[in-house]
């Protein structure tokens, strides 16, 4: 058990989608009394189980809406699973979408410190990382500019720099490698490889098989909430392309 970083056991996630828009309080009461408040149950994930050993890079392949992001949010603790259990050993740095929890009103500097604090790092510890983070993101000129004035590429760069610099045990990456120009993409690949040789566990999500092939050792395919395949990255990528989901 000690060398397992993430253990997902028979996890299912259900969302309630309200079928018709309830317009007001009166209508809500009336409908509740008549027991007409129907919800559509939507199972975003169905009985997913897998283990990720420490230091492994696991690729997750799937189309939009296949449950990839839900799975990552479950692992990072944002959602709690409806059924099943998830055990995580070590600190997680989730890199979901662009810029994790940046406050648009605040400057890049303040956001870096806030983000560090979310990973449990003290401001004095962040002082030592700050230079590195800004060097990597190449955002020194904009250190005191509020994030709301940043372009999406800039905030993605900052987000990537912070998430990979706070020394996480487990890094969760959601489609982030596609952001930024090719030079930054190359740089971030180098950084990911650095982290890997340092023993960081990575969960990488993509709908492109090439990205997964380049970085991962094992992979899985998600399709409409179910796991279609899990195993060696080459086999899985082949399966992904053959099944016609990926093309």
């Amino acid at each position: 058990m000690e060398n397992i970083a993430v253990s997902v056991k028979d996890v299912s996630m259900m969302f309630n989608l309200s079928r018709d828009k309830v317009l007001g309080f009166k209508e809500y009461i009336v409908k509740a009394l008549k027991r007409q408040l129907y919800y559509d149950e939507f199972w975003a994930l169905k009985n997913i189980s897998f283990d990720v050993p420490k230091g492994e890079v696991l690729g997750i392949l799937g189309l939009n809406g296949s449950g990839k992001s839900t799975l990552l949010k479950l692992v990072s603790g944002v959602f709690k699973p409806t059924k099943g259990s998830i055990t995580v050993n070590g600190s997680i740095s989730p890199l979901l979408e662009l810029g994790m929890g940046f406050d648009p009103e605040f400057s890049a500097r303040e956001n870096v410190y806030m983000n560090g604090a979310m990973f449990g790092h003290s401001p004095s510890y962040m002082d030592t990382l700050y230079k590195d983070i800004m060097d990597f993101a190449e955002l020194w000129e904009f250190a005191d500019v509020p994030i709301k004035n940043f372009s999406s590429g800039m905030s993605a760069r900052l987000g990537f720099s912070v998430a990979t610099r706070v020394n996480p045990d487990i890094l969760i990456v959601d489609e982030i490698l596609g952001v930024g120009d090719f030079r930054f993409a190359e740089k971030s690949e180098v950084r990911i490889n650095e982290l890997l040789s340092g023993g960081t566990t990575v969960l990488l999500v993509s709908h492109a098989a090439e990205t997964i092939k380049k970085l991962c050792t094992r992979a899985m395919i998600l399709h409409q909430g179910s796991m279609l395949g899990f195993g060696d990255v080459d086999e899985i990528c082949e399966l992904y392309q053959k099944s016609g989901i990926g093309s």
């Binding site: 406050d103 009103e105 605040f106 303040e110 410190y113 806030m114 560090g116 604090a117 979310m118 449990g120 790092h121 003290s122 401001p123």
Partner: peptide, 17 residues
């Protein structure tokens, strides 16, 4: 304990804003 730095930063931020 893990989030105490976040708490302090948030207090500081509230006050500055």
């Amino acid at each position: 304990n893990h989030f105490r730095h976040l708490l302090l930063l948030m207090v500081k931020r509230d006050f500055v804003t």
